[in-house]
Design a binder for these strands. Structure first.
Length: 289
DNA sequence: CATGTTTCCTGACAGC
DNA sequence: TGCTGTCAGGAAACAT
């Protein structure tokens, strides 16, 4: 399941491979719930646009688009900021926003490559290649817009004081709070469990009950685990692969996630699994308090 | 408002 | 073999 490190890996791979290419035409499948914007609007926004870059925002992929226009190599200088009325809708700041959900993939395919089952969108590129969105479980979503912003803070950018403030007076379990995208954007089930283990905090602890020291450990643990995971190209669980089709390797570093009943790597006690906020939550009953 | 629960969806897997 | 049932989970919708 793509969380922050996986989406970061995918975004980097896509940026490397399709930046500068031009979307010539778009095909969209007929599954309506996959599209958050009307199909015609998505197609119109993407077609004849140059890919200016691909970034990760929270768990979203943002494909920045600019008018492909006539003059090929012209590079429109970015937003003169300041004065009002600058939100030029001429397209150069349009964005294609992709949420991969559980099983979504964005693949760069060579011309003529077989079309995988559950392909919901295909963007034909001027290079002849295709950018394809494939998502068996259909939890992924496509939309278009401008100036996309994540609802919460980026875990790798938020300052400690703000991080601590997010959890004050919150009665919900810390695990639920970590998964709440309006607080932090990008943390999913794997990295919530892994960071709580490293911070030695039980997932069911009420967020408000954590001391400043607890939260500082959690802050450092979360950033550490996310950075290490990005370094290893993310966790390949079930069907995640990067834009290059490469598997990540962080799953080999998981200390609690998916290890129910196995020995804790620190104290040798069996890892427990409980359900919190509807998600399997893994922890060591002795190491985590 | 805050928090908990249900829903969507298919593939993988266990058990018979 | 092939069927059935269960489980996985991000986030929106709905309920409390």
């Amino acid at each position: 399941m793509p969380e922050l490190p996986e989406v970061e890996t995918i975004a980097r791979g896509l940026a490397k491979r399709v930046t500068g290419d031009v979307i010539e035409s778009v095909w969209l499948g007929s599954k309506p719930q996959t599209l958050k914007s009307p199909a015609a609007e998505i197609a119109a926004t993407l077609e004849n646009k140059r890919v200016a870059g691909v970034r990760r925002v929270g768990k979203h992929l943002v494909v920045d688009l600019q008018d492909a226009g006539k003059a090929g190599s012209r590079r429109p200088k970015t937003a003169r900021k300041g004065k009002a009325g600058v939100s030029a809708p001429s397209g150069q700041e349009a964005q294609w926003i992709v949420h991969l959900g559980m099983t979504g993939r964005m693949l760069v395919c060579e011309p003529g490559a077989e079309i995988a089952k559950h392909t919901h969108a295909i963007a034909k590129l001027a290079s002849g290649r295709e950018l394809r969105f494939v998502d068996p479980r259909r939890f992924g979503r496509l939309s278009v817009g401008h100036g996309f912003k994540a609802a919460g803070y980026e875990p790798l950018e938020v300052e400690l004081d703000r991080f601590v403030g997010l959890f004050r007076r919150r009665k919900t379990p810390i695990k639920s709070a970590l998964l709440n995208q309006k607080l932090l954007s990008g943390v999913g089930n794997i990295y919530a469990d892994e960071s709580l283990f490293r911070a030695r905090i039980r997932p069911r602890r009420r967020a408000a009950s954590l001391t400043k020291e607890d939260l500082q450990r959690l802050y450092l643990a979360l950033q550490e685990v996310l950075r290490e995971a990005i370094e290893l190209g993310g966790s390949s669980i079930s069907d995640y692969v990067s834009a290059d089709g490469e598997e990540g390797f962080f799953q080999l570093q998981h200390r609690v996630y998916g290890r129910e009943g196995e020995k804790c790597l620190v104290c040798k006690m069996p890892i427990k699994r409980v359900v919190i906020a509807g998600r399997g939550s893994h922890y060591c009953p002795t190491c985590q308090k």
